[in-house]
Amino acid sequence: MKILKYLLIAFIVLGGLYAAVYFMKSNSKSPITYETETAFTTSIEDKTVATGKVVPEEEVEVKPQVTGIIDKIFVEEGDEIKTGDLIAKIKVVPNEQALNAARGRVNNANINLGNAKLDYDRNKALFDKGVISAQDFQNIQLRYDQAKQELRNAQNDLQIIRQGSTGGAQAITNIRASVSGTILEIPVEEGDQVIQSNNFNDGTTVATIADMKKMIFEGKVDESEVGKLKVDMPLSVSLGAIQDKEFDAKLKFIAPKGNEEQGAVQFKIEGDVYLDEDFFVRAGYSANASIVLEKKDSIMAIKEALLQFDKETEKPYVEIAIGEQEFERRDIEIGISDGINVEVISGITKEDKIKVWNKTEPKKKGEDEEEEEASN
């Protein structure tokens, strides 16, 4: 009986051990086999991209010098014009307050002239008789001449307010181009009222003119990169409207003050764009400018995905193979990066085999279905 009892206990223990081993094997995943890569020689460019647009270097707004109504427009948007070309004609509409003041000035000038003439005629007779001296008569004649000049000035001012100029009989004034270039915009139409440009008002823009052969790139860069920029750095500008074409440019301006946009400080930059005659670049095209901040040729590099970082010091390191699926940590010093490859200054050699630590293990058959059922 005791033998049977011991045999039964032994059978139960062995069965339990077998079940435990089977359970562990059935639930354990196969170990990951890590691949390795080595360093290589390449060239790396550290670039940044600024978003913006291309615009003419100078845009001139043509404004009227008198207030009135657009009588006729002689150009269209896109026309090439030269300095002095006629853009539009304006029918002058006098300002009632200014017109009334000008009329009052003319009346006052007439009164003063009449009084000066009476004084002149009276004293001229006395001068002819030798009653008054020549010096006194000269003073009286001077006041008379000044009164006549004041009347002419007042009449001219009244005519300018009524007709826009002193030269013509019709109340029409011409608007002419102040520079040569292309008509970008005509924001008014025939019949629209326009306001003159003066010290208190910018006036109504009749046309906008720009030289389309001189274009610049206007964009913004983040504060983390603006310190790396320098005037005269080369740019490569690509336009959204022109595919598979890049235009060379040169950085000419970096704003000394940034503006906060959506929580980040952005600095304005400008660059001269060298146009290609085979392509017509319109004002306002959206553009991206690629700027090479730093470039190194023939340097040792590794893929940036191979890097690991210490949780405490945040210093970079890699794992080097020292045996079959055995690795050790190796601290390294890194340089510039382009987001794909990173320069290795020291810490490893080209012969070292670097662990591909972030390689994911392929899922077993049926695991996707099990995870989907678990999530549901």
Rank of each mutant, 00 (worst) to 15 (best):
Leu8Ala: 11
Ala10Asp: 04
Gly15Cys: 10
Leu17Met: 03
Leu17Gly: 07
Tyr18Arg: 08
Tyr22Ser: 10
Met24Ile: 11
Lys25Gly: 03
Thr36Gln: 07
Thr42Cys: 00
Ile44Asp: 00
Glu45Pro: 01
Val49Ser: 05
Val49Met: 00
Gly52Met: 01
Gly52Phe: 08
Val54Ser: 07
Glu57Phe: 12
Val60His: 13
Pro64Cys: 05
Pro64Ala: 11
Pro64Met: 05
Thr67Val: 01
Val75Ala: 12
Lys82Leu: 08
Thr83Asn: 10
Ala102Arg: 04
Asn107Glu: 14
Asn108Val: 10
Leu113His: 06
Gly114Phe: 10
Arg122Ser: 08
Ala125Asp: 12
Arg152Tyr: 08
Asn153His: 12
Ala154Ile: 11
Gln155Ala: 08
Gln159Thr: 14
Ser165Thr: 15
Gln196Val: 07
Phe200Ala: 09
Thr204Met: 00
Gly219Met: 07
Lys220Gln: 14
Gly227Ser: 08
Lys230Asp: 14
Met233Gly: 02
Met233Ala: 05
Ser238Ile: 06
Ser238Arg: 11
Asp244Ala: 15
Glu246Thr: 03
Phe247Pro: 02
Asp248Gln: 02
Ile254Arg: 13
Gly258Ala: 10
Val265Pro: 08
Val273Gln: 01
Tyr274Asn: 00
Phe280Asn: 05
Ser286Ile: 04
Ser290Pro: 01
Ile302Tyr: 08
Tyr317His: 06
Tyr317Ser: 10
Asp331His: 11
Glu333Gly: 04
Ile334Gly: 01
Gly335Tyr: 07
Gly335Asn: 09
Asn341Arg: 05
Ser346Leu: 07
Glu351Gln: 14
Lys359Met: 02
Pro362Ala: 15
Lys365Ser: 14
Asp368Tyr: 06
Asp368Lys: 13
Glu370Pro: 03
Glu371Ile: 00
Ala374Pro: 05
